[in-house]
Amino acid sequence: MTSVLTVTSAEKSFGETRALAGAGVELRRGEWLALLGPNGAGKTTLVRSIAGRVRLDAGEITLLGTRLDTTSGDAVRAARGKLGVVPQEVALYPKLTARENLTVFGELLDISRPTLAERVAWALDWTALGDRADEPVERFSGGMKRRLNIACGVLHAPEVVLLDEPTVGVDPQSRERIWQMLEQLRQDGASLLLTTHQLDEAQQVCDRIVIIDHGRDVAAGTFDELVRQTIGSGRRVSVVLEGEPPAALLEAGLEAAGGDGTSETLAVRVEDIGEELPELLARIKAEGGRITDVHVEVPTLQAVFIHLTGRELRE
């Protein structure tokens, strides 16, 4: 896949604060890329620098083949014209209706008059706000505002879309709806780069993930790649036994992980699940243990994130 957006060695300081310290990111055509990082890691600064709102101290940004940091004039404007940006804040005019917001932002995005009417209709349909199109936005729920906020950023059908926390502060139902909207955008050919705190959903919906911390990218790849790079293929296995566990098993390194009087759980970490799990089960059986259940811990992005940054995402 070809790259539509590349940022390399991005550096930016605000006074004494170093927001970016060599961060890099690559977005490929048709890809959905998640940019993860704790608060203050530099995600928003990176997004704003791509959008042209922050001038980098050093580094390169290439958007759709155009170097944004060195090229000037029409070429940059043309490239940025194919970029859609959805800010973290609900940046809408609350006293204007949904249709009016879409129309005025469409005009500001310089969408031609005949196309604009079509795009507004598309956006109202896409966001499922058609029946509320002529109501002031201030009466909308948080989720509805978020949907409209995204629509205003992609009204000009951009090839590359930057979304800064597009689901922050919305309920799970609305979040699901937003993910569906974004998936539809991707199916229509857009490449998406989003920052998010929703690790589980980023893990489910995004093709690749970049983790950024202290202003630099610390890992990038698919979820499986990140798991391999960080916590590896080891798994924690828990085996539930009926009654008291044989003493030989405890002496062999399995640890008691709790019980309820009628059953006892033993846990152990295995490095190669394929090889070691059958051996473990056979040994328990051989020692007289009666297995009633087996749990294999699934690696999560949360675990990967903590492994890489040493802290929770919201810290």
């Binding site: 973290q88 609900v90 809408l92 500001l108 995005l109």
Partner: peptide
């Protein structure tokens, strides 16, 4: 404060 100014400046204005 609301972020609208940022959005306007992100457009062609």
């Amino acid at each position: 404060e609301s972020g609208v100014l940022e959005r306007v400046l992100l457009s062609h204005a």
